[in-house]
C-alpha cells in the first residue's frame, strides 16, 4: 500500500494511470466492435499502416496528429472499401497495406534529416512519459468516440450481428462500416502515441474476447472490457514499477497470462461437463 502511495507521488505515474484509464475505455469500446465484427486483422493493418503517417508527418514537417490520423484514415477507408467489395480478397489487401505503410514510414524517416522517432517507442510506446497536454487531447477523443458509439448503439449492434438483415431494414450499412473504420483509425493513432502499437492491439482484442463470454449485450461487453483493460493496465504498471520492467510489455504479459488462464479454465469446464454427462449415462 505504501508503495502504491509512493508511486502515486510522481506526476509521471499519475499521468500513466490516467493514460491507462483512457486507453482502456477506448479500447474496450472499439475493441468490442473489432472483436464481434472479426476485424482484428484489419485493426492490425490500420495500426501498422499508421507508421507511414508518422513518416509522412516528419518528412513534411506536419504536426504529428494531422499526418498520422490522415494517413491512417485513408488506409482504413481503402481497406474497408475492399472488404465491402471483395471480401474474399480482403485479407491479402490488408496484408499489403500493412507492409507498405510500415515500409513508407521507415523510408520517409530515413530521408528526414535530424531527429527521428525510433521504431521501439512506436511499437511499445512510453506510457510513463505521457505529458498532461496529450491526456487532454486523448480525453476529448475518448469522449467523442464513445458518444458516437452510444448514440448509434442500435445501429452498430444491427450491423455487427447481421449485416444482411440490417441492409434490408434500410440501415446505412456501408456508411456505418466506414464510420466504424474512421473511429477505429482515430482511436488507434491516438493510443499508439501513448502506449504503442503492440499494446493497442492487445487491449483491443484480449479484454473484449474474455468479456464476450460473460456478456449479455454489446454494452456490457464494452463496459466490462474497459474495466478489465484498466485492471490489466494497473497491475501491469504496478509490476513494472516493482520489478523495474518495461511497462507496455508488462501490461501485455499480464493480459496474455489472464487470456491463457481463461482459455484453460474454459477447457477444464468443458471436460468436466462431458465427464458428468458420461457418468449420467
Amino acid at each position: 500500500m505504501t508503495m502504491i502511495l509512493e508511486a502515486l507521488q510522481f506526476e509521471f505515474m499519475r499521468n500513466a494511470l490516467v493514460a491507462g484509464l483512457l486507453t482502456s475505455i477506448i479500447c474496450g469500446f472499439m475493441g468490442t466492435l473489432v472483436v464481434v465484427n472479426r476485424i482484428v486483422f484489419l485493426s492490425g493493418g490500420i495500426a501498422h499502416a499508421a507508421y507511414g503517417g508518422i513518416g509522412l508527418a516528419f518528412f513534411f514537417g506536419w504536426p504529428y496528429l494531422t499526418g498520422t490520423i490522415g494517413f491512417s484514415v485513408v488506409a482504413a477507408m481503402l481497406m474497408s472499401i475492399i472488404t465491402l467489395k471483395a471480401r474474399h480478397r480482403a485479407d491479402t489487401i490488408i496484408g499489403v497495406v500493412w507492409a507498405l505503410g510500415m515500409a513508407i514510414g521507415v523510408i520517409l524517416l530515413d530521408l528526414t534529416p535530424g531527429y527521428n522517432v525510433d521504431l521501439m517507442s512506436y511499437l511499445f510506446g512510453s506510457i510513463l512519459t505521457v505529458p498532461s497536454s496529450d491526456l487532454w487531447i486523448m480525453g476529448v477523443i475518448v469522449l467523442f468516440v464513445c458518444s458516437l458509439v452510444l448514440l448509434f448503439y442500435n445501429q452498430w449492434l444491427a450491423l455487427s450481428y447481421d449485416e444482411e438483415f440490417a441492409r434490408i431494414r434500410g440501415v446505412p450499412v456501408n456508411a456505418l462500416y466506414m464510420g466504424m473504420m474512421i473511429m477505429l483509425a482515430i482511436a488507434i493513432v491516438m493510443v499508439i502515441q501513448v502506449v504503442g502499437l503492440i499494446l493497442v492491439i492487445a487491449l483491443l482484442t484480449i479484454p473484449p474476447y474474455i468479456m464476450e463470454k460473460f456478456s449479455k449485450s454489446l454494452l456490457q461487453m464494452m463496459l466490462g472490457s474497459s474495466l478489465l483493460g484498466l485492471i490489466f493496465t494497473i497491475s501491469g504498471l504496478w509490476l513494472s514499477y516493482k520489478f523495474d520492467l518495461t511497462s507496455g510489455a508488462t501490461i501485455i504479459l499480464v493480459s496474455g497470462i489472464v487470456f491463457m488462464l481463461v482459455l484453460l479454465g474454459e477447457k477444464i469446464l468443458r471436460l468436466k461437463k462431458q465427464e458428468m454427462r458420461a457418468v449420467g449415462l
Partner: peptide, 16 residues
C-alpha cells in the same frame, strides 16, 4: 455474439 433473444427480435424494429 453477446446479445439476448429479445434484442435480436428488436432489431426488426430498427429505423432506417
Amino acid at each position: 455474439f453477446p446479445v439476448t433473444v429479445l434484442d435480436v427480435v428488436l432489431m426488426g424494429r430498427i429505423y432506417p
